[in-house]
Design a protein around this nucleic acid. Structure first.
Lengths: 211, 211
DNA sequence: TTGTCAATTGTCAGCGGCTGTCACTAGCCT
DNA sequence: AGGCTAGTGACAGCCGCTGACAATTGACAA
């Protein structure tokens, strides 16, 4: 049981986030001012900045939730799995549990909408990529510990994570630009791209047939 | 022979860029205002924005030069080379020819300094990553054409480029945080990391010994 | 309950990045 | 020399964001 103050804070934050996402996905990110959001919620602009580090922060809040959900999944993978396999299964697990993670704030639909906004807004995409880079750092440490390696001296965990993230980045991007914009589609793309990882590296590219 | 107007424009732009880099590397990016730069050059703030799309743009101008130099190198690789090998050799070529590309504006030393600024300034790092993503798109098209593939339907060129870029990103980062901050060190790191690409993916990580 | 303390908020002022506008200056060209 | 145009400066203004301070509101004990 929480205090009234905490509940109020929670409600304000969620209201701000919900309105922000609503406006970003309808009007667009750049065409939405912080004042718009604050006014729609009925708080001062200053209050918005007390809940979010910046406009970006609100736009990427959902993304941050899914990322930390994914990282948690990686941590929870059984230690006997090879690292790449653990990442692969964790990311699929992440998609499967996305509802529970996101739905507490907005319907999954809105999440997908925000994804398109992020991909199509340069400044948001940039911020998203930087956060992904930070996540890579965390994943590197997790994997290194799993395997008993020191990430400061052994570059291999970091390299693996970078390669994996590169594939996921391609997947994200194709997903957001494709017409098929569902979680199932994302899942299928993930599987397909990771299967292509090995063959794509050889450079002996046999004719490609869609699966 | 160019007209006087064009020479003047060129000089103004270079002056702005030089001063910007000077201030960014000494005072730091955030602690340098556009007014500082404009005043130091002796032009109005408005003029700065006529030469650069933003403060970021000036900070990443050198980086943009090296990127396009690298892309050109890839285009010039003999077509019989496997894609990954073409990328590998092109990036090494890029480091070797960096002097000629950059020295026309500032000494290579300053370039290295700006690199550290970029890596340590969140907003710059974000912008840098986004530009890298754009470069990946270009490289994808170049490689796809080399191999006679259609990047719209065949994800393999894009995947290869993403993997390669991931490795280079790790290399950049380690380079910028290592003490050894020379082009030779960067070259060595590049070679070493690309050699580790295959072994790092297997996940059967034998004890690591530095080369 | 009531009074005190701490947390939350609103208001105001201000900085810095960035843009539109418009008049003015300086190079170009005949 | 004089008209044309590219480039510049000056000004006003929007927006993101921050610090400071006062006002309000919930928490908690007397």
């Amino acid at each position: 049981m929480e205090t009234l103050r905490e509940r109020k804070k929670q409600r304000t934050r969620e209201a701000l986030l919900r309105v922000a996402i609503e406006l970003f996905t309808t009007r667009g990110y750049e065409r939405t001012t912080v004042d718009d959001i604050a006014d729609a919620v009925g708080v001062s602009q200053r209050t918005f900045f007390r809940y979010f580090a910046g406009k970006e922060d609100a736009a990427l809040a959902l993304d941050a939730m899914t990322v930390s959900n994914f990282v948690d999944s990686v941590r929870a993978r059984p230690p006997h799995e090879p690292p790449l396999e653990a990442l692969r299964l964790a990311v699929l697990e992440g998609w499967d549990t996305l509802h529970e993670v996101v739905e507490s704030v907005v319907p999954v639909e809105r999440f997908l909408g925000m994804y398109r906004v992020i991909e199509s807004t340069p400044v948001l995409l940039a911020a998203h990529l930087r956060r992904s880079a930070e996540a890579e750092e965390v994943l590197t440490r997790v994997l290194a510990e799993r395997e008993g390696l020191d990430p400061a001296t052994d570059p291999r965990p970091r390299l693996l994570v970078a390669v994996f993230s590169g594939v996921m980045r391609v997947t994200e991007r194709q997903w957001s630009t494709d017409g098929e914009f569902s979680l199932e589609a994302m899942r299928a793309l993930t599987v397909s791209h990771l299967e292509l990882l090995g063959p794509a590296l050889t450079g002996k590219w046999s004719p490609y047939t869609k699966t």
